[in-house]
Amino acid sequence: MTTATASPGMALRFYRYCWLHYRRNWKGTIVISVANPLLFLVAIGAGLGAVVGSHVEALGGVSYLAFFAPGMLAAASMQNGMIESAFPVSYQRMPGRAYPVAVSTPLEPVDVLHGHALFMAVKIAIGAAAFCAVMFAFGVAASPLAVLALPAAVLTGFAFAMPVAAWAVTLPDVRPVQTLFKWVVMPLYLFSGTFFATTQLPEAVQHLVALTPLWHGVELCRTLTLGTATWAGSLTHTAYLTALALVGYVVARRNYHRHLHP
């Protein structure tokens, strides 16, 4: 199998297509990707948080809002990473959609992957930036390092986007994507330490949770925001998420070629 060398210029051509397409579709996704997490932040963080009361020991001595907000940042970023990859990739790879059209021009499958991945990263960053702005306005940041929660959240989202894109490009239709959201996204969302400290779970379950990528994203965002980050911890989380993104990228590169130039 010959794989053509990637061309950044060609990738940008597909990236520009993504924006033009998005201009027609932004209304459909802005609610779920930007408004939804913010509503959660206000309703759960500020609303429920007031009921929980502040300085509960299991939360590490901070308010529930301060505990919940950076966790939600990571979870929302994960969800955005999946939304930006699963549906669009499985849709655009169908006969007659944007992927087959692009790869019949000078673009190679790898350029389409690069252009689309860049678009995903930018969309994830926009969602995370909006969330961070509101989170910081609530006065949650306890350290100047909190600004690093933004790139941490983007990395979290991207670490999900790449493997999901690698999988979605192989799908004959979009139905399995629904299953992914029901059986993977929801459990991760609920049990990766977003809403409550995982120390409250049985020890065996805690070990299991610590293997999930979202837990690493949540821990990274939370410790950076609350000023409790350690070098060892942060590097481990970053390495884990980077590795996941890289493996996803390598598989995606292979799968894009196999499925778009079969």
């Binding site: 007659g96 021009t105 190679e108």
Partner: peptide
């Protein structure tokens, strides 16, 4: 492939237009 495709015109059976 790239150089050849740059000089081809392709009309697929399913039109493959962006309907939006």
């Amino acid at each position: 492939g790239r150089r050849i495709r740059a000089r081809l015109g392709v009309v697929p059976q399913d039109d493959a237009l962006d309907s939006e």
